[in-house]
Amino acid sequence: MAEEENGAAGGGEFYLRYYVGHKGKFGHEFLEFEFRPDGKLRYANNSNYKNDTMIRKEVFLTPSVLKECRRIVSDSEIMKEDDNNWPEPDRVGRQELEIVMGNEHISFTTSKIGSLMDVQTSKDPEGLRIFYYLVQDLKCFVFSLISLHFKIKPI
């Protein structure tokens, strides 16, 4: 297998963090997860609506799982994008995506994206679409991992 240093399956650094949240009448509500280089997956979900408990879970993943996460990121080609022309975080909410892969480190921020309509009408629809789908694929992966391991329903 040709595994270059920074490729999807390659070695080198890998770190990923995603945050989405807003501050409103129920306080600071957010969802955040991160994949750490030692394999630790952390997941936090804070909703102050009705019950104000914060869900915080962590579990160690095997290298195979990290590798799959890395493949998903690499296939998306998000590292080639730039958040320069994306909508800025606003009162409705903010998203943050931080990834270290090989010798590249991105830290993108943008507003919440309600639908693909928001993507189409933005100044960088191609880039934002990549972000939009990658975030959904990552959430889907993390929710499966967390719900299978802990038997909780994320969100």
């Binding site: 914060m54 915080r56 579990v59 931080e98 590249e104 480190h105 830290s107 993108f108 921020t109």
Partner: peptide, 29 residues
């Protein structure tokens, strides 16, 4: 962290303190 090529608005903001607050505390495992 080895020197990296960085990109994104996230590097221009100072939200470390808030993030500290957000992700500090006990995580269940």
């Amino acid at each position: 962290v080895a020197p990296k090529k960085t990109k994104g608005r996230g590097f221009r903001e100072e939200t470390d303190a808030e993030r500290n607050n957000r992700m500090s505390g006990r995580f269940d495992s």
